[in-house]
């Protein structure tokens, strides 16, 4: 399922865990676990803007604003792309 999940993430317009759960007929926590595992194994990279808190703007009065921006983006890493290329090669091989 993880390979399919990786492919679905790469090919999807966006990541909606509930939509993926429906697509894979699995409960949402399962999809969450799968995505977390793909991140842990470096097939996906998550970037949360919450990390902006780490920026050296502690004295800035607007620090509060930037720390709250609720976006999470996902990128398929080079390792993930490599795997997907291999998979698509296997699929197209006669």
């Amino acid at each position: 399922m993880l390979k399919e999940l990786l492919k679905a993430v790469r090919d999807g317009d966006y990541v909606s865990k509930s939509a993926l759960a429906e697509q894979f007929a699995r409960p949402v926590p399962f999809i969450e676990a799968g995505l977390a595992e793909l991140v842990r194994m470096d097939y996906l990279q998550e970037s949360e803007n919450l990390q902006l808190c780490d920026l050296p703007c502690g004295k800035c009065p607007y620090t509060g604003f930037c720390s709250q921006t609720p976006f999470k983006t996902i990128t398929v890493t080079e390792k993930g792309e490599r795997l997907l290329r291999t998979l698509s090669y296997k699929e197209t091989r006669p």
Partner: peptide, 28 residues
Amino acid sequence: SHFIMELPPYRKPTLRNVVRNMWDNVSG
């Protein structure tokens, strides 16, 4: 470069979060 955005489920805004968001900005 390409990236994918995660869309979290909608939820009912809480007064606490809304007030905190406002306060962070207004206090700044």
